[in-house]
Amino acid sequence: MARRPTIKDIARQAGVSQSAVSFALNDRPGVSTDTRARIRRVAEELGWQPNSAARALSGERSGAVGLVLARPAHTLGVESFFLQLVSGIQEVLAAGRIALLFQVVEDIDAECAVYRRWWAERRVDGVLVVDPRTRDPRPALLEQLALPAVLVGGAGGGAHSSVWADDARAMTRILEHLHALGHRRITHIAGLPGLAHTARRMASLRTEAARLGLGPDRVRSVVTDYSDAEGAAATRRVLAEPEPPTALVYDNDVMAVAGSAVAAELAIPVPDRLSIVAWDDSALCRVTHPRLTALVRDTAAFGRLAAEELLAVLAGGPPRLREAERPRLEPRESTAPPAAAY
C-alpha cells in the first residue's frame, strides 16, 4: 500500500542518519552543504512533506490560516462575492505554499468556538475575519488568544490590522446618481443589519438624503439576509405601498436580479417606472435584461490585499489600516429618469 514517506525513508535512500535528515530539512547546522543538498533532493524525489501537526506541537508554524463564515449557508451558494474574495486570498496563500482552512458556521458564537478550538489544536497561524459586526466579540477574543488576525471590511483600530472599502462614499455616489436622474423616492434593500458595512451604508444613505433635502419618508433602508428570496419579498412589499419608490438599491447582485424579476412579474417596467442599482457587479448584472447599473470593484484584489496583510502580520509587522480601491459606479440600462406620472 502507498504510504507517506518518512524521515527514516529519506535517511535510508540518502545513506545518512535520521538526525542528519532532521538537521538538513529544518535548516539547522550539523551537516555539510553537499549532504544537505543531497538530502533535500532525495526528499523531493520521494514526495516528502513536513507533518503540520507535528510542527505545531513542536512550536513551529502550522503552515495554514483560517477563514470562518458565520452566515446562513443558503445565502452563500448563489452570491459571487465570497467566491471571488476567496479566490484572491487563495492566490496569495498558494504562492507561499500556505493552506487555507475554511469553515461555515451558523452564528457568531459558533465562529468564536471555532477560533478557540483552532487555537487549542494549533491548527492555524492566523485568521482572516470577515463581516465585522457593529458589536463584535471576535477582536477581543482573538487578542486574548494571541491569535494573529486581519479584519476584512473593518474600519480599523485596536490590536488588529484591517482592510476595508469605503462603503459610505460608494453609497453617496449611488444616491447622487439617482438624485441627478430625478429620483426622490429611493429604497435601499440592505443586507444583514448587524454587519458593520451594512451600518455604514445605511448611515451614509441617511446623511446624503438629508443633504439633498430628502426625508426618511422618501429615502430609507429595509434589511434582509442577502438572499434572493428575502430580496424578492422586500421588493414586493415596497412596490405595493401607496407611494412606492421609483428607485431601488440592492446590497448585492443576487437580490438585484430577484428584484428585477419581481418588477417584471408586477408589470412594472425597468427603467421606465423603476430604476435598479446593484451593489456588487457580476455576470448576473450584465446578462439580465435590462443590464443592471452596478458598483464595480475588484473583489479578488480585495482578497489578495487581505491575505498579503495577514502574511505581513505573521512576519511581525505592526497593525495597519489598508484601504482597497474605491468601487466605481457603472451606469447601465436599469437606471433612467422616473416617469413623470409615477
Rank of each mutant, 00 (worst) to 15 (best):
A300C: 03
L142N: 05
N51M: 11
L192C: 09
G30S: 07
E330P: 06
R286Y: 09
I10P: 00
E309Y: 01
P137C: 04
V68N: 02
S162Q: 00
Q18A: 13
D136G: 01
L101W: 13
N252F: 04
G96L: 05
L69S: 08
P139S: 02
V130D: 07
P148Y: 06
M1N: 13
I174M: 14
C285E: 01
V257L: 04
V68M: 04
E243R: 15
I98Q: 11
V223N: 15
I98V: 15
R36Y: 06
T75N: 08
A37V: 12
A53V: 15
A341E: 15
A155T: 13
E106L: 13
Q144D: 14
L329V: 09
E111G: 02
I108Q: 12
H183L: 06
T6W: 05
R123P: 09
A99V: 13
G157L: 02
T6A: 06
D125V: 03
L178Y: 11
Q13N: 11
D109Y: 09
F23Q: 10
V105W: 03
M1G: 15
R97Q: 15
G191D: 05
G259S: 03
A324F: 05
V219L: 06
A149F: 09
A11Q: 01
R184P: 05
P242Q: 10
V42T: 08
R332V: 01
A168W: 06
S227L: 01
R4I: 10
P193Y: 12
E60W: 15
V150C: 02
L25E: 00
R291Y: 08
G47S: 07
S22P: 01
